[in-house]
Amino acid sequence: MLARVDDRHQRTIHISIDGRAVEVRAGDTVATALLAADIAACRISAVSETPRGPYCLMGVCFECLVTVDGVGNRQGCLIEVREGMAIETQSRRREAGR
């Protein structure tokens, strides 16, 4: 369970994660929004089909892949949340060209 360091007061932003309405802070990345919402696993891996979640939080490991506004396999840690954004975790493994 991750707790926020409450020393900055950011605007509230409304997004959805898997259809559920969630309030996050302006400036959050999609990956931090997921972690703050207690979602540690955001996808399953392509070969072994095991759960994976944000790890490096800096664009290197490609573990934080999620579907953002309908586009699959985006790196959540590199995308800032926007009002109305729809994030989906990936419960099915990624297929080429599907």
């Binding site: 392509a46 070969v47 493994r93 080429a96």
Partner: peptide, 23 residues
């Protein structure tokens, strides 16, 4: 490329899918 479910079951001299799913 990004990792995807295994679909390429034979390596081609210029294209192969790794054990971890990357092409």
């Amino acid at each position: 490329t990004e990792r995807v479910a295994p679909f390429l079951h034979h390596p081609v001299v210029t294209i192969r899918q790794t054990d971890e799913g990357s092409v």
